[in-house]
Design a protein around this nucleic acid. Structure first.
Lengths: 205, 205
DNA sequence: CATCCAATCTTGTCACCGACAAGATTGGAC
DNA sequence: GTCCAATCTTGTCGGTGACAAGATTGGATG
């Protein structure tokens, strides 16, 4: 009985199962015991790897920041090579990440769910924010306004807001109204159109 | 003993207590029994008014939408009188609402916490979204681009993203960088500066 | 005023959950 | 072969949400 003790990679399995549950039913109904059941281990096994429930969600938030940072870094490299830095591409990556990893995205910005003072989380968040700002700073001034920090706030806000509202299904009616009169059919295209309204060549005053 | 049965306005007391708890410690740690304790009633009393925990949070979400809609409607009336419709003012109201009622704001956009198909909630959300779109539609085209629906998505996104990131303390470092070189000291002013980067007089085509 | 009723609140209970403690098992280092 | 640290299990406790059944109240009706 009791199967075998060493599971192999229980930590990863629990993390993936948590992401699945959160994606379908949200973080509120997440239960360590259910995750243990899914993984086929005892009810206290998950706690060993994450300390407690908050620890599990902190791990998810860290992983989310790392995934996002990797995607942003990739976009920065690509646009650097093509010689045409494009802030919208960063935003598209941001929105795409939120759609592909909704569980991670949801946990990352919910301070009450994870341990805010975790060193690993602080480092991961700093890296993501740094890439965001770096990306804006590389833009020519006429395409991002005179103040990079202010532009970063604007770009981050519009991408984050779009991603959040999209995931929460708050843009369904509006996006139908927009897409009905254009050829765009994906949220990527809709966001590109939205992003085009920012930094559209005026002087930032 | 047992004090007196009829509390007077238990529903309101529970709602306010819930908002307090959520504001300080987040929705994750909310407990109906704790609210009952605070209100001085039995542990099952709150359920009578809201059905269950989800019902309580649905009521909070409805109230939040109504408060926000009222503020947006007020802003629309004011700018209509002054003859200078200003989209940024709507955004400022949006952000101000998120800061003044962080508990409501947090619950409103968290589908897993409230009952999405509640008729009252659907109506309240429709009213808020309608005001948002109406506000943008009244803007002259050269200040909001050719497509009102698209402009609504953009304006809603930037306001919602700013509010969310601000409440989650993700803009602290950036706002310090911006505010350090300007006279602005309040988030209202910071958002105004951000909003000025949208629809800044370029042609949307 | 007496009676009745629906709304409100209480008491009691059950299954589930998170956290903790103590013990069992495993793989690997030595 | 022995030991050890990491991993997982078992057992338990207090707290929680949900539900059922009963008690209390204010007001309506006569």
């Amino acid at each position: 009985m009791s199967a075998r003790y060493h599971h192999g990679d229980l930590r990863r399995v629990i993390l993936d199962a948590a992401a699945d549950v959160i994606t379908t039913t949200g973080p509120a109904s997440l239960s360590l015991r259910e995750l243990a059941r899914v993984a086929g281990v005892s009810h206290a096994a998950p706690a060993h790897h994450f300390g407690d429930k908050t620890g599990l969600l902190t791990a998810l938030a860290i992983e989310g920041n790392e995934l996002l940072a990797a995607s942003l870094a990739e976009a920065l490299n690509e646009t650097a090579e093509s010689g045409e830095p494009d802030f919208a591409e960063l935003g598209v990556r941001y929105v795409r990440f939120a759609r592909r990893y909704p569980a991670h995205f949801a946990v990352m910005f919910r301070a009450d769910l994870h341990r805010e003072d975790d060193p690993g989380l602080i480092a991961a968040k700093a890296r993501t924010a740094g890439l965001l700002r770096e990306g804006l700073t590389t833009l020519p001034e006429h395409r991002r306004g005179p103040d990079p920090a202010l532009s970063t706030v604007a770009a981050w806000s519009i991408a984050h807001g779009f991603a959040t509202l999209w995931n929460a299904r708050n843009l369904d009616a509006l996006s139908a109204a927009v897409l009905g009169r254009s050829a765009a059919t994906e949220p990527d295209e809709l966001f590109r159109a939205v992003a085009a309204l920012l930094f559209q060549g005026g002087n930032g005053g």
